[in-house]
């Protein structure tokens, strides 16, 4: 937790203003309350996944979770397959969360018990999870979402979509409190900053890290649930590209890739910027493939500017 505002966040805010101003100029009718709802609706899934990604990276030890998209895809389809096999459809909501949690725990065990490098471990599970989601469903969207979920997934209150208001926002605030004001949070920063010292002072590093991966899985499960309630079906490709966008959001939000530095509210800001950018492009009828390109370019450029500014100042 740094009290100083990170330069990346300033760049982000400026970029966001630029995007909004550009939109207002090119498509004035876009500036409306309904756009806010749309942006937040699209943000919810990314926000949840990016929160998990941020936690994993914060824990340090080269922590990264490439498998987030795969976890979302599998957690969105596997419960529907179970329902198809005869389980009551009310179990879908807890099913998504449990499925995500289980997948996250697998990641955590691979990293903490087998001591695999996180990049490689989650790369392998990314294959298994995302490939599994596609293979189990033969690539087809799965029906069977209980209609009970839809009003929650598509509703809004005060212009804020319900999934964002009831799930993403509380989780972000809870995590911010957890990181800033509990010993568990201080442990995360300590072990991310210097793992050896953290071990020496008796922080249960492996357990905390396992919990972080499990949390990332659980959050991916939440994102899967949101996608079900919003889209009304379980799509095996719903998590596509989330590893890139969630990593981008975490980096742009000021999380250091080395761990131990950054806060989650910056990540939320970064998510909102990215989604505003994407929705804006959508309004201007720019093809969706461009969005991936713009996300990538934003990532590289903002980090370059940040680094060059640092080099400039120190030399």
């Amino acid at each position: 937790m740094t009290r100083r505002v990170s330069p990346i966040l300033v760049i982000l805010a400026l970029l966001w203003l630029l995007v909004v101003a550009g939109l207002a100029l090119l498509q004035p009718r876009v500036i409306a309350l309904s756009t806010v709802t749309t942006v937040l609706q699209y943000s919810t899934i990314l926000a949840l996944v990016a929160l998990g990604q941020a936690l994993v990276i914060l824990c340090g030890g080269a922590g990264i979770d490439i498998s987030v998209g795969g976890m979302v895809s599998l957690a969105a389809t596997a419960p529907l397959l179970f329902v198809k096999a005869g389980l009551p459809s009310l179990l879908i909501a807890p099913g998504c969360l449990l499925c995500g949690l289980a997948l996250g725990i697998v990641n955590g065990l691979l990293v903490t018990r087998l001591r695999l490098l996180p990049l490689i471990a989650t790369l392998a599970t990314f294959y298994v999870y995302s490939g599994g989601a596609v293979a189990l469903t033969a690539g087809a969207a799965q029906a069977g979402v209980p209609p009970l979920l839809l009003p929650w997934g598509r509703g809004a209150a005060l212009g804020l979509p319900l999934p964002f208001l009831t799930l993403a926002l509380p989780l972000f605030i809870a995590t911010a409190v957890l990181l800033g004001w509990t010993s568990y949070g201080r442990w995360i920063y300590a072990m991310g900053f210097n793992e050896r010292s953290a071990r020496l002072v008796g922080i249960p590093v492996d357990r905390v890290r396992l919990i972080a991966y499990a949390a990332s899985g659980m959050l991916a499960g939440c994102a899967a649930l949101v996608s079900l309630a919003w889209l009304g079906s379980g799509r095996p490709n719903v998590g596509q590209d989330l590893e890139l966008t969630s990593l981008t959001a975490a980096m742009l939000g000021g999380i250091s890739i080395l761990g131990g530095k950054g806060g989650v509210l910056g990540v939320l800001a970064a998510v909102l910027l990215l989604v505003t950018l994407q929705t804006g492009l959508l309004q201007l009828n720019v093809n969706s493939v461009w969005q991936v390109g713009i996300v990538g370019a934003t990532l590289v450029l903002v980090l370059l500017i940040d680094n060059l500014a640092l080099i400039w100042r120190t030399s």
């Binding site: 890739i257 991936v292 590289v300 980090l303 370059l304």
Partner: peptide
């Protein structure tokens, strides 16, 4: 140049370039 001269961690920088190149292919 992005990774070595720009000093961005390789995994982050190349994930970004992945997105850029894919858009460029399109």
């Amino acid at each position: 140049s992005v990774v070595v001269l720009g000093r961005i961690p390789a995994i982050v920088a190349t994930l970004g370039l992945f997105g850029v190149y894919r858009a460029a292919i399109f």
